[in-house]
């Protein structure tokens, strides 16, 4: 097992290097002058030139591109992600709160997503081609075809504007509220984005669970179990579902990592101050360091998600790590 894990990690290293090189090149392609953005505008021409040259050197822009890349990587390893010109603060400080907000939003989404989709997926597989299954098949096709911005706008139209039950978007105001009210305000702001993200994500999880269950139910050992005269419940939950858990568990691990992956569109519409929204504002403000850090962060999260689900897969299913 250790060998398997080490092998998986070793494979990741060139992948990560490639990704960072791609991100670095995109950063270099970005329009705008990063030095200019970091200098105060009220300097005289001479002072400005001197300050410009100093900053140019300090950012290491006088070095060759490979050297700049290595410096950038080393800095990131040491926890120095650069300076955000948009907020005039270190990038690490800028993203701390949005990451927290994104995690808060996604915790609810993931819990709901798994709670809803696993039982439904199992039931669909057991009662395959029944009314229940057909309903969820069509339902998942519809939510699959639903762009999140449109779903968000429809929900806002109904619940925020016409019924007035929920806020139109934005973040709860921390300074005005206290105690229970504060929690309630958070919940109110969380409801609509949570519904949108859950509806959009359950479609694929239901299908994955359903297909895994159908595959498991088609196995010979299920026929044997039924032939033994076991109760259908035992067959489904104890024989089939346990084996269906293998692919399902990788999905679960993957979704846990999506805690950190901000959803750009939904966060933008609901003005939720998460990392997806920060990325958009960083791009609009041409804040290159913040953009590259965010992109590296997103890539790292998805690489780690793949790694962990591979390892979990190997742990659960010995056939994987032996092949």
């Amino acid at each position: 097992m250790t060998r398997y894990i080490i092998k998986r990690i070793l494979i990741l290293i060139p992948v990560l290097i490639c990704i960072t090189i791609i991100l670095f090149s995109i950063n270099k392609l970005m329009p705008g002058d990063p030095v200019k953005a970091m200098l105060p505008t009220n300097l005289k021409a001479e002072q400005y030139q001197a300050a410009y040259d100093a900053m140019y050197e300090k950012l290491g822009l006088d070095k060759s591109l490979p050297e700049q890349y290595v410096r950038w990587m080393l800095n990131m390893f040491q926890g120095d992600f650069g300076w955000s010109t948009m907020n005039n603060r270190a990038v690490a400080d800028v993203v701390a709160e949005p990451i927290r907000n994104t995690v808060i939003l996604n915790v609810g989404v993931i819990i709901l997503q798994l709670l809803i989709s696993i039982p439904i997926g199992i039931h669909c597989a057991v009662k395959r081609r029944g009314l229940f299954d057909n309903f969820w098949q069509v339902f998942s096709l519809i939510t699959w075809s639903m762009p999140s911005f449109f779903l968000s706008m429809c929900l806002l139209y109904i619940f925020a504007i016409n019924l007035g039950w929920l806020p139109f978007g934005g973040m709860p105001n921390a300074s005005l509220l206290s105690g229970m009210e504060y929690v309630l305000a958070w919940l109110k702001h969380l409801i609509l984005p949570t519904i949108v993200l859950t509806l959009i994500s359950i479609a694929s999880t239901i299908r994955i669970v359903r297909n895994a269950m159908i595959d498991a139910l088609n196995q010979d050992y299920i026929r044997t179990a039924r032939a033994k005269g076991l109760k259908e419940k035992v067959v489904v939950y104890s024989h089939a579902f346990r084996n269906a858990l293998i692919p399902v568990s990788t999905v679960v691990v993957g979704t846990v990592f999506s805690l950190f992956a901000g959803s750009t569109i939904t966060e933008t519409i609901f003005a939720w101050n998460g990392i997806g929204k920060v990325l958009i504002s960083a791009i609009n403000a041409r804040d290159t360091m913040l953009i590259s850090t965010m992109n590296t962060f997103f890539s790292l999260v998805s690489v780690l998600a793949v790694l962990v689900s591979d390892i979990v897969y190997g742990l659960i299913d010995p056939r994987v790590r032996l092949s």
Binding site: V15, L16, I19, I22, I26, M30, A261, T264, I265, G276, L279, I280, I283, I291, M294, N295, F298, S299, V301, S302, V303, V306
Partner: peptide, 11 residues
């Protein structure tokens, strides 16, 4: 696959 789609497409 490790490249996050929306952020990179936007960037």
């Amino acid at each position: 696959s490790a490249i996050p789609f929306y952020p990179i497409a936007i960037t």
